[in-house]
């Protein structure tokens, strides 16, 4: 269970996140959506205490994250963040082993069980065969799977993902989110693709200019009115095989009256 109440984050005078809150319970997949610069990533970073909010409170299982030591926090919350690649030749096995770090002493060697956990985590995401490869040589889809495997090795029951489907082809996008949805953990995910959000999230929180503009089920949040206001796009919602999907078309430049929806 992750909850955030009235979280505000700012640099200097400017508030990037202004009074945002959410609550994600066990097994839920909460999607954070909103246009570029709406504060999604900044808000997500407060959830794992990488950023200290100016105001508000974030708790995991009713304990404030600000009060938890680094390793304690990492045993509860695992994160797939956006990362610029490093030059150093890390192997996939070492990458996933990092997830074991919060579980072992600073000087102790990783034991046989740590390696078993890594093997099982890689197997779970279908990447066991990649263990000895160098991370930098993987395709985008394989990289994301490995990062998810690391969160599994971390054995946290909360998972935060920041645009995990970036740079993935459509097959991998669905693959990844379906896998995440089946993990049986509390998940908060930042997503750009609204149709993915509609399909895989149980709850959506829409941010615009640092504030929440809507929250609820995908059907409640992804309304033509909201999308026009927030994204300046015309959207036609439809239900295909019981799942909400959206068809988009650009807003007419001069037209003052909303075109037929």
């Amino acid at each position: 269970m992750i909850t955030a109440r009235d979280v505000s984050v700012g640099y200097d005078e400017h508030l990037v996140v202004d009074g945002v809150g959410l609550s994600a319970g066990p097994g839920e997949v909460v999607g954070l959506i909103g246009p570029n610069g709406s504060g999604k990533t900044t808000f997500l970073r407060t959830l794992y205490a990488a950023l200290r909010p100016r105001a508000g409170l974030v708790t995991v299982d009713d304990q404030p994250v600000a009060g938890l030591r680094g390793a304690d926090l990492a045993r509860r919350i695992a994160v797939v963040a956006q990362e610029t690649p490093s030059d150093l030749p890390v192997t996939v096995a070492d990458m996933v082993l990092l997830g074991r770090a919060p579980h072992s002493g600073a000087l102790a060697a990783f034991g046989r069980d740590d390696h078993r956990v890594v093997a099982a985590s890689l197997a779970r995401v279908g990447a066991r065969h990649l263990a000895e490869r160098r991370y930098a040589t993987l395709s985008g889809g394989e990289k994301q799977r490995v990062l998810v495997a690391r969160t599994l090795a971390q054995r946290a029951d909360h998972l935060l993902l920041d645009e995990p489907t970036n740079h993935l082809d459509i097959g991998y996008q669905h693959d990844l989110l379906r896998m995440v949805g089946r993990l049986d953990v509390t998940t908060v995910v930042v997503l750009h693709d609204l149709n993915l959000a509609a399909r895989y999230c149980t709850t959506l929180v829409a941010l615009h200019q640092g504030r929440i503009v809507a929250t609820g089920t995908p059907a409640e949040v992804l309304t033509p009115e909201l999308l026009r206001e927030v994204y300046r796009i015309e959207a036609r919602p439809m239900t295909v095989d019981g799942c909400l999907q959206l068809f988009f078309s650009p807003v007419e430049e001069q037209s003052t009256s909303p075109s037929g929806v």
């Binding site: 970073r45 794992y48 990488a50 030591r69 680094g70 390793a71 304690d72 926090l73 990492a74 695992a78 994160v79 797939v80 963040a81 956006q82 990362e83 610029t84 490093s86 150093l88 890390v90 990458m95 990092l98 997830g99 770090a101 919060p102 971390q154």
Partner: peptide
């Protein structure tokens, strides 16, 4: 060595 984000994610 992998990144600041990764480090923060691991506490």
């Amino acid at each position: 060595a992998i990144g600041d984000q990764t480090a923060q994610a691991l506490g």
